[in-house]
Computed example of a mutant assay.
Amino acid sequence: MRYRELGDVGEVTEVGLGTWNIGGDWGDVSDEAGREAVRAALDAGVDFLDTADVYGDGRSERHIGHVLDERDAHDEVTVATKAGRRLDPHTAAGYTAENLERFVDRSHENIGEGTLDLLQLHCPPTDVYYEPDVFDALADLRARGKVDHYGVSVERVEEGLKAIEYPGVETVQLIFNPFRQRPAELFFEEAARRDVGVIVRVPLASGLLTGTIDRDTEFPENDHRNFNRDGEAFDVGETFAGVPLDAGVDAVEALEPHVPEELTLPQFTLRWILDFDAVSTVIPGSTSPAHIESNVAAADLDSLPHRLHGAVRDVYEEYVAEHVHDRW
């Protein structure tokens, strides 16, 4: 496993584990399956786990805390969690110092840590990025030892660019994959210039970039790939990276012939993401230990040749860009 700097947080493994799916919104996942996913990631060498207080109403955080407790590994793993989406209604006005501290205290209890390694605002309304008081509240939480570091998770590139104007923001989490390429145009350059860590989520486009989904694939009622196809529950960019399913399947079919025989499509995708130096870590999620191990192996692969990067760009421009490029 290779390591990269995550802003001032320190070195983390190039491939981490995203744990939305072990909390909720991905169909039924048992408690033991969720915990076993965390164990599998740690066994594969992962030392960066990403979660949020709303993933299963804290279930994901509790799974992480349980496994770290049983292995006495709290000091060996960086846990990044998120706060803000518990607000109802989810409005900029709710991002007060009092609410943020309340959310942080709840995450302390769930994870079993008195200080959060990394707290991220959880895709707040755009207006929040223009409220210095919010970032002052984060700085105060850090000064009082409730969080070690803080950053943001964003939907749009413009939000990330605004967030890194605040000097205390050490990380930005966003969607980046062969079907969401806009961050590479300007954001990565600015993040690198400011030494801001970049966490890449939704790297496999909600499973599209595993090659196992077709137009007729059916998903459980409680899977966001069923109930959020058009953004009914939250930003549609979180589901299939915002790509309409039919267009996404066409794009995968066009991409697959370019994948070297020795690689799986997920490994090819993760390696493509890691070829961008500004990326600090990528956080695919899975409940399959075998898939987790395979994903982690992408960190040790050689960089893809320029011709394959060109092929990915061609597929993006032909099948995907019109749906996503100017929206996020």
Score class of each variant (00 low, 15 high):
Val236Ile: 10
Arg201Thr: 07
Val198Ser: 04
Gly231Ile: 07
Val200Phe: 00
Ala251Tyr: 01
Phe188Ala: 11
Val236Gln: 12
Ile213His: 03
Val202Met: 04
Pro178Ala: 10
Thr239Val: 12
Ile199Cys: 02
Gly168Lys: 09
Arg193Met: 05
Glu185Phe: 12
Gly231Asn: 08
Glu189His: 12
Glu189Arg: 13
Gly248Pro: 02
Pro203Thr: 08
Glu190Asn: 09
Pro244Leu: 01
Thr217Asp: 03
Phe240Glu: 02
Val249Leu: 09
Asp230Met: 10
Leu255Arg: 02
Ile213Ser: 07
Gly242Trp: 01
Pro260Leu: 12
Gly207Glu: 03
Arg215Asn: 13
Tyr166Asn: 14
Leu255Val: 11
Glu190Arg: 15
Arg182Glu: 14
Arg215Met: 03
Ala205Val: 12
Ile175Asp: 00
Leu255Ala: 08
Arg201Trp: 02
Pro183Phe: 04
Thr171Ser: 13
Phe188Met: 15
Ile199Ser: 01
Tyr166Cys: 11
Asp250Pro: 06
Pro260Val: 11
Gly242Val: 06
Leu204Thr: 04
Ile175Thr: 14
Val249Lys: 11
Pro183Gln: 11
Arg193Asp: 14
Phe234Pro: 02
Gly197Glu: 01
Phe227Gln: 06
Glu170Gly: 14
Pro244Asp: 01
Ala233Trp: 12
Ala251Phe: 08
Asn177Gly: 05
Asp223Asn: 12
Pro220Thr: 11
Glu165Thr: 15
Glu185Lys: 13
Gly248Met: 04
Arg225Ser: 07
Ala241Trp: 03
Glu170Thr: 15
Phe219Val: 05
Asn222Phe: 07
Pro220Arg: 09
Asp250Trp: 02
Val252Lys: 04
Ile213Leu: 09
Leu255Thr: 10
Val202Asn: 08
Pro257Phe: 05
Phe219Asp: 00
Gly197Gln: 03
Leu204Arg: 08
Ile164Tyr: 01
Ile175Trp: 00
Val202Gly: 00
Val249Asp: 01
Ser206Gly: 06
Ala205Tyr: 02
Pro203Phe: 06
Gln181Gly: 06
Pro178Asp: 01
Thr212Ala: 15
Phe179Thr: 10
His258Lys: 05
Val259His: 01
Ala241His: 01
Ala233Asn: 11
Phe240Ile: 13
Gly211Cys: 07
Val249Phe: 05
Ala233Met: 15
Val202Leu: 06
Glu253Ala: 15
Val169Ser: 00
Glu253His: 10
Leu255Phe: 02
Asn222Gln: 11
His224Ser: 08
Arg180Gly: 02
Leu263Ser: 03
Ala241Arg: 07
Gly168Met: 05
Glu170Phe: 02
Thr210Gly: 04
Arg229Met: 09
His224Val: 12
Val249Ala: 09
Glu218Val: 15
Glu189Tyr: 08
Leu208Asp: 02
Pro220Leu: 07
His224Asp: 12
Val249Gln: 09
Leu245Met: 10
Ile175Gly: 02
Gly168Gln: 05
Pro183Ile: 11
Pro257Cys: 08
Ala251Asp: 01
Asn228Pro: 08
His258Arg: 10
Asn226Thr: 09
Asp216Asn: 14
Val249Gly: 08
Gly231Trp: 01
Phe187Pro: 06
Phe176Cys: 07
Pro203His: 08
Asp235Arg: 04
Ile199Leu: 14
Gly242Arg: 08
Val202Ala: 02
Pro244Thr: 06
Glu165Val: 12
Ile164Pro: 00
Arg182Val: 13
Glu165Trp: 03
